[in-house]
Amino acid sequence: MQKHSCDRLGQWLDQRAGLLLSLPALLLLLAFVILPFTMAVYASFTNQSVRTFMQPGTLAYVGWDNYRELLGDGDFGQALFNTMYFVALVVPLQVGLALALAVLVNGAEMWRRMLRISFFMPVITSMAVLAVVWTLLFNPGAGVFNTLLRALQLSPQPFLSSPRQAMLCLAAMSVWQGVGFQMMIFLAAMQSIPPALYEAARIEGAGRWQCFRRITLPMLKNTTIFVVYITTVFAFKLFVQPHLITQGGPRGSTRTLILMLYDEAFTNMRYGKAAAISVMFFVLVLLVTFVQRRLMPREERL
C-alpha cells in the first residue's frame, strides 16, 4: 500500500516536472511582468493620474482618448522617429564593432586579458558617471573633442547643442559604452569553435580572411542572431543617456519614447497617458522583432 502511493506520487511528479520546475520563474514573471502590464493596458483606457489616486471617484474610463491624443500631436511622432533613428544607428554599429573587437581580442594572445578588460570597463561603469564625463568631452567650448579638432585645424562642432548632432553623439557614446557586452558574447562563442576546423582549413590553404569568412562567421550565426535581438531591444529602451545628458533637447531631438513615457508619468503625472505610451511601445517592439524574425536567417542546430 505504502509503496503503491509512493509510485503514484513519483508518477505525478514526473508528469508535471516541467511545470513544477518552471513555477518559480513563472510566478515572478507573472508578478513583475504580466500582471503590471495587464494593469498598464487597463490604465491606458482611463484618465488615471495623481489626482485619481488622491481623490477617489475621479477615475473614469476614457476609451481611446489617450491613444488619440498621442497620435494627434507631433511629439509622439518625433519621439518615435528619434527612437527608430537611434536603433538604426546603434544596432549595426554596435554589433559590427563588437564582432570586430572580438576578432581583435581573440587574435591578440598577449594582450587578450588587458584588451578584454579595457573594452568591458565602460559596461560596468555607472551611466551617471559616464554621462558627466561625456558631457564634458562634448562641451563645444572647452571640450576635449573640439580641442582636438582645433589642433587638427578642423572646425569645431556644436555636438550636443545641435539638434542634428545630438542624437549622433548619444549613439556614439552608447556604442562605446555597450559594445563590450556584445564583444564578450562573441568572444565566448568564438572560443568554443573547435580549433580543428581552422587547422583543417589552413592545411587546405585557406588564408586568414577565408578562415573568418568561411568558418568564424558561419559558426557565429546563432550568436549573431541573438546579439542582434538583444541589441535592438536595448536600443529601443534608450532613456538614461538623454535623460541625464540632453533632457531630450535640443528642440526635442533626443526625446525618445521612454523619455516621453517618463515625463508623462513622473512630470505630468498622467499615468493613463503614460500607460498608453508603454502599450504602444510594446506593440512597436513586438512588430520590429517580428519583422526581424522574418528577415533574418533562422537559428540552426549546429
Binding site: 531630450g248 535640443p250 505630468n268 503625472m269
Partner: peptide, 21 residues
C-alpha cells in the same frame, strides 16, 4: 498644480532659445 510640467517645458524652451531656436 502642475508646476513640474510648467517648469520642465519652460526650462527646455529657454535652453533652446538660448541656442538660437
Amino acid at each position: 498644480p502642475r508646476y513640474g510640467t510648467v517648469t520642465t517645458e519652460v526650462s527646455r524652451a529657454l535652453d533652446d532659445i538660448a541656442r538660437g531656436a
